[in-house]
Design a protein around this nucleic acid. Structure first.
Lengths: 253, 253
DNA sequence: CGGAACATTGACCCATGTCAAGTGTCGTGG
DNA sequence: CCACGACACTTGACATGGGTCAATGTTCCG
């Protein structure tokens, strides 16, 4: 989940080459880049837009989503300050990027990026590694969407956000969720109501606190983790059906 | 982000430049590689194994899966002749690769591969393509696991197999499924029974034929496609609940 | 023949999506 | 300042889709 986003952070370093000199050049380039502001619900880009720039989120938050043929909205990830979006796009964007809070972004022309990458021969191998990382991240996303109960998904979501927050030097237990319950539902594949009920459920069990609807405090991270992992000690968290399943098919291969 | 990724794949083609000679070299290298045989249910490698080799499937089929903390098995993909497996793992394998039919594989030592790709850009490019295919497939799986009915998932699965078969010069409408119903269930996130019922359902509607349990003939590919896409004309395929949903939340942003 | 593995089908029921109603909370305009 | 609407969140009641259990059929192999 947040997995998907974190990998984006690293790409530019890879695309540009890993040596310190070009990294510096790259950071300087970003600092000079034009700053764009997008208000809540505004789009950074939409599916089909020509890919003129790559963006780095400075403040705010962005949801990356795709609308499926039947109108379903599938959010594929969220980008927070430090994350890059629109990277590597070639011709036109394949998804939509929508601000979920007032957001500021640095705009990097793709032509510049391409010039840099054409000069450094090491890039080929680094790209391979970048792809491998992407693949691993996307697979993680698949696992979160396996047959998992709402409480497992939400617990995993909160922990991913927590980890993310910790990596950025912020509080691991207390944070604001920038996205709405609907967004979380569209991300985890749940209805708004189920997301809401699950939050209530976690709160009732004393695992989290919700001073405001979008401010979360993780009270018992360990238990949340065991729920997210679907561990034996937390079986109550699963629908009965899956409980039995876990017993019947312990391991295979 | 999947965006970012699928695009990155193309960069090497730009940076690199393809010549016929190295292609020959690459194929020759593979042809000289040691041939390994794995019988049905044997493992090519398992999670945690050191990544000594990359493999290319010559004949047979391999399931790539991971066992989650609660014992759930999630198949993340199948590899057929021509596919590479073991790519992108660094140090040790992150998943299990199990033959689902008698299988022969070419074993390519990663050290050799790395040497070659340092000298010959085309090899790196080939590996990109392989990885990119993996990534695209995995990304599709993410969307498949959104809120989609069994019939949509199964229809999509059959069509993906069909497309794959066509690309390899085989029949697009008639083929053998090498995997069991359980495997399909673990791939699509459905129970065996539901998979079975869905096959029956499709057969009853005349969309497919099943001479043997694992031999499939696609009778009406177009209709299957519209089912897989969840298109309006095929709404009967969705649970009523999702039908309403599609109407209520047509598009957002 | 017998046993194992896989596939199919029916019956049941619970978890989750849907509908509906009520409760904040915010922003705008009078 | 309040009134109002828009929007997000919560909670309850209900329906149902798909997982589970159980029984049977089919294929394969020793």
């Amino acid at each position: 989940m947040a997995v998907a986003v974190s990998r984006l952070v690293r790409l530019p370093a890879i695309v540009v080459g890993i040596n310190a000199r070009s990294a510096v050049t790259f950071e300087q380039g970003i600092a000079r880049a034009w700053l764009r502001k997008v208000e809540t619900k505004g789009h950074v880009f939409t599916e089909g837009d020509p890919t003129t720039h790559v963006y780095r989120v400075e403040t705010g938050a962005v949801a990356l989503y795709k609308v499926l043929a039947d109108g379903q909205r599938q959010i594929v990830g969220f980008a927070y300050p430090g994350d890059f979006i629109g990277l590597g796009a070639h011709g036109e964007h394949l998804m939509n990027a929508q601000a979920i809070k007032p957001t500021r972004l640095r705009c990097l022309p793709v032509a510049t990026l391409r010039q840099l990458s054409a000069r450094d021969p090491l890039i080929g191998f680094k790209l391979y590694e970048a792809l491998a990382r992407d693949l691993a991240a996307t697979r993680d996303l698949v696992f979160t969407k396996g047959r998992r109960s709402p409480i497992e998904r939400v617990a995993g979501f909160l922990l991913a956000f927590s980890r993310r927050n910790g990596e950025n030097g912020h509080d691991r237990r207390c944070f604001d969720l920038p996205m709405t319950r609907t967004d979380i539902g569209d991300f985890l594949g749940l209805s708004v109501e189920t997301v809401s009920r699950t939050f209530t459920n976690l709160r009732m069990h004393g695992l989290i606190e919700l001073p405001c609807t979008n401010h979360v405090k993780l009270v018992d991270i360990e238990q949340l983790q065991s729920i997210a992992d679907g561990e034996e000690g937390a079986l109550w968290t699963k629908p009965m059906s899956l409980r039995r399943l876990a017993c019947r098919r312990p391991r295979r291969g």
